[in-house]
Computed example of a mutant assay.
Amino acid sequence: MKAGFSVGYWSSGPPANIERRLAEAEALGVDSFWTAEAYGSDALTPLAWWGSRTSKMQLGTSVCQMSARTPTAMAMAALTLDHLSGGRFLLGIGASGPQVVEGWYGQPYPRPLERTREYVEIMRTVWAREQPVRFEGRHYQLPHNGGAGLGKPLRSTVHPLREDIPVMLGAEGPKNVALAGEIADGWIPLWFSPKSDAFYRDALNEGFSRPSARRTAQDFEVAAVVPLVENDDVEKAAARLRPLIALYVGGMGAKDVNFHGNVFARMGWADVCAKVQELYLAGRKEDAAAAIPLEMVEDVALVGPADKICEDIERRWRPTCVTTMILAGWPRPDVRERILAAVRG
């Protein structure tokens, strides 16, 4: 596996010491640096700002919200960042969920897989730059049908540095994961668990088997964001992640539609998810976090002393389909190289 470093999206403001951590990560040979967005900080601005301090690391988004930008706007941003980084950009995009898409971005959510397929096709047409862009889809039309009636097909004024910028899909459900295997260059799972490896391999293989598949299992990237909290006390380490898991399981989505909760339910935590959601939606966030057992945290995260973290990586994570472990957490200096070595094997 390769090692990546993630800062995700912000809470109340920019995380501290990112410039220093990036310099340390690049000096240690960390392969990639990743940002994210939901409904606060965006993914592209921090990636460009902090990424300008790097010279070797790949720069990725995990993920950009599709509903935040039209396909051509996303293609423009990607080719711009690819030029500025010297061809180091990795474009991760995702359909998100109805709560965010319709509540924050004011866009329709239905038929997300179909929308994703159109979105990616348009971006690749922009980057190929073979002709002015024309597209007549269910969700996107270029030129726009209606309005002033004066739209005309256009071609990017910029020649892309790479005509085939890597596209990675953020996906959780089996159909969306299969779509990633079919149309993308990689998959960015959220809340990946080694115990679900066979389930995800089956979904990816469904995509790889389709006639239009771009990749095979041998040249496909799986970049999993893995929370990491290093502490000699396992329970103290897990306690730092419980509120985050409770937010996703209990508060990200409607009562009957929560894709993140479904991920944990497939791991065998359906009863816990139901309890966490009940508490969270009742406003009892601390109780919701406390209801998450240690084993549920350990399913999706690296927590505890460095020896345990290294053993978990080598025994549980390395045999999976994950090709890049994006660490969402930065270990102490005296154990940092050991943990990175465990990732790389």
Rank of each mutant, 00 (worst) to 15 (best):
residue 75 A to I: 12
residue 75 A to K: 03
residue 75 A to Q: 02
residue 75 A to G: 00
residue 75 A to T: 05
residue 75 A to F: 09
residue 75 A to C: 03
residue 76 M to F: 11
residue 76 M to C: 14
residue 76 M to E: 14
residue 76 M to V: 12
residue 77 A to E: 06
residue 77 A to C: 09
residue 78 A to T: 09
residue 78 A to Q: 06
residue 78 A to E: 00
residue 78 A to D: 05
residue 78 A to R: 12
residue 78 A to W: 03
residue 79 L to A: 09
residue 79 L to D: 14
residue 79 L to W: 11
residue 79 L to N: 09
residue 80 T to S: 13
residue 80 T to F: 03
residue 80 T to E: 00
residue 80 T to R: 07
residue 81 L to T: 10
residue 81 L to Q: 03
residue 81 L to W: 08
residue 81 L to A: 08
residue 82 D to S: 05
residue 82 D to P: 00
residue 82 D to F: 00
residue 82 D to A: 01
residue 82 D to H: 00
residue 82 D to I: 01
residue 83 H to E: 07
residue 83 H to W: 02
residue 83 H to Y: 02
residue 84 L to M: 14
residue 84 L to E: 14
residue 84 L to T: 11
residue 84 L to C: 06
residue 84 L to Y: 09
residue 85 S to L: 13
residue 85 S to R: 03
residue 85 S to F: 01
residue 85 S to V: 05
residue 86 G to A: 07
residue 86 G to F: 12
residue 86 G to L: 00
residue 86 G to T: 02
residue 86 G to W: 02
residue 87 G to P: 11
residue 87 G to H: 14
residue 87 G to S: 06
residue 87 G to T: 14
residue 88 R to I: 04
residue 88 R to A: 08
residue 88 R to N: 05
residue 89 F to N: 00
residue 89 F to Y: 14
residue 89 F to W: 08
residue 89 F to A: 05
residue 90 L to I: 15
residue 90 L to N: 14
residue 90 L to K: 15
residue 90 L to H: 14
residue 90 L to D: 13
residue 90 L to Y: 13
residue 90 L to E: 14
residue 91 L to H: 13
residue 91 L to M: 10
residue 91 L to R: 04
residue 91 L to G: 10
residue 91 L to A: 08
residue 91 L to Q: 01
residue 91 L to N: 07
residue 91 L to E: 02
residue 93 I to E: 02
residue 93 I to F: 12
residue 93 I to V: 15
residue 94 G to S: 11
residue 94 G to F: 10
residue 94 G to W: 07
residue 95 A to K: 12
residue 95 A to I: 04
residue 95 A to L: 08
residue 95 A to Y: 00
residue 96 S to N: 04
residue 96 S to Y: 02
residue 97 G to W: 15
residue 97 G to M: 15
residue 97 G to P: 09
residue 97 G to R: 15
residue 97 G to K: 13
residue 97 G to I: 14
residue 98 P to H: 08
residue 98 P to L: 04
residue 98 P to V: 10
residue 98 P to M: 07
residue 99 Q to P: 12
residue 99 Q to A: 12
residue 100 V to M: 10
residue 100 V to A: 12
residue 100 V to T: 10
residue 101 V to L: 06
residue 101 V to M: 00
residue 101 V to F: 00
residue 101 V to D: 01
residue 102 E to P: 02
residue 102 E to C: 08
residue 102 E to S: 11
residue 103 G to S: 07
residue 104 W to Q: 15
residue 104 W to C: 14
residue 105 Y to V: 00
residue 106 G to T: 11
residue 106 G to E: 11
residue 107 Q to K: 11
residue 107 Q to E: 07
residue 107 Q to I: 02
residue 107 Q to C: 09
residue 107 Q to S: 11
residue 107 Q to T: 12
residue 108 P to M: 05
residue 108 P to W: 07
residue 108 P to Q: 11
residue 108 P to L: 06
residue 108 P to C: 10
residue 109 Y to A: 13
residue 109 Y to W: 10
residue 109 Y to V: 07
residue 109 Y to H: 11
residue 109 Y to I: 07
residue 109 Y to M: 01
residue 109 Y to Q: 04
residue 109 Y to F: 10
residue 109 Y to S: 05
residue 110 P to M: 02
residue 110 P to D: 15
residue 110 P to F: 04
residue 110 P to A: 08
residue 110 P to E: 15
residue 110 P to Q: 13
residue 111 R to P: 12
residue 111 R to L: 11
residue 111 R to E: 13
residue 111 R to V: 06
residue 111 R to D: 13
residue 112 P to V: 03
residue 112 P to D: 02
residue 112 P to I: 00
residue 112 P to Q: 05
residue 112 P to E: 09
residue 112 P to H: 02
